[in-house]
Design a protein around this nucleic acid. Structure first.
Lengths: 189, 189
DNA sequence: ACCTGTAATAGAATATGGTTCTAGAATGAT
DNA sequence: ATCATTCTAGAACCATATTCTATTACAGGT
């Protein structure tokens, strides 16, 4: 199965520069696949990109699921799971994360059905754990639309900047800062 | 001066789809400029993109400066200025903001000197207003590297999602939510 | 074993579109 | 008025994403 090899080669190529300056020829050379083979599997260069995005988001979603399960029903630990699993995943998969941050906001990605679907599942998963906590007053009620922006966006932003060498300390060094900040936002008065 | 016309045309073209699917030919047609003219002014398609990014960031920086000045030395009003001016700017310039969000994370942009320079000035401006407040204990001390991620990233993230129609309410409808969240993070215990 | 259809691979041919080149027009300084 | 510089123009060029046609591997059925 060449599919796997192409994805790995593509990630390396994309990481070295960016999607548009990585050529199909380079991906072929690195993966040993032919042009035809690449197009058979992915249809287009954007297709490779979307597959790589979807796989990455999926992997992170799985990690989040495990973390939340482990957190049980404790509100602070749930917040910790959401923020912490993100930080861990980025540090474990830096190149992949870099690629995702650089490309998730492209117009192609944000309108791609598989990716929208993964986002939907992400939302459902978080709701499943947090809705009961909100109902029982253990977590402050906030506009649902704002949730991801308030809780995970800060850690995402920091991780992105770290991957670009714009900050010195790794996200895990700041782990407590971000968990604490998220907690301050959601903890009841 | 064709420069202005090209930038406006390019923004429209880029906004309709994205940078890579907007053709130089289309930008020429819309602006009335010739290929040669475009290349004389910007050097490359990426050059157009970078100019558009720099102009936008510059404009927002100016708006932030005004807002902070108006806030005087009051800690809450300073937080309000940072978050609020961002929300206002996005709603006033939705297409421009959309373009910036879609392209600021591209590898070309994050290594471009003029853009790094604007970010530096952004940092300086914020420091100038907040450092005294931190010294005097009116605002909690947090790792400096984390500041932007903690304070403005949530509003940025929400604005980005709004521009993509992923949330219903406009950022200004959630203004208080985001200002309040930022305040919870920075207010002294 | 042998056909048959489908998936996978290959690489040459094509076409799109960014960039370069050469040259001509406008502008401004001395 | 002349010269230098900036700006405009569009044809030529070239890199490269995509398409096309052909060949090979492989499965299930007979």
């Amino acid at each position: 199965m060449r599919r796997r090899a192409v994805l790995e080669a593509a990630l390396e190529c994309f990481a070295e520069t960016d999607v548009e300056s990585a050529s199909i020829a380079a991906i072929c050379a690195r993966s040993g696949a032919s042009v035809g083979s690449v197009y058979h599997h992915f249809g287009s260069k954007e297709g490779i990109m979307l597959a790589l995005l979807a796989d990455g988001l999926e992997a992170h979603l799985k990690a989040l699921g495990r973390a939340l399960e482990h957190a049980g029903g404790d509100p602070f630990q749930c917040v910790e799971a959401v923020v912490g699993s993100l930080i861990d995943w980025v540090e474990l998969n830096p190149r992949w994360a870099m690629f995702i941050y650089a490309n998730l906001n492209s117009s192609g990605a944000s309108s791609a059905e598989p990716i929208i679907e993964i986002n939907r599942r992400y939302g459902k998963l978080v709701e499943r754990y947090f809705d009961p906590l909100i109902e029982s007053g253990q977590i402050r009620r906030l506009p649902r639309e704002c949730w991801p922006s308030l809780i995970v966006a800060p850690a995402h932003d920091y991780a992105r900047r770290w991957l670009r060498d714009q900050v010195r300390n790794s996200p895990s060094r700041q782990r407590q800062v971000f968990i604490d900040a998220a907690w301050r936002i959601v903890q009841p008065d």
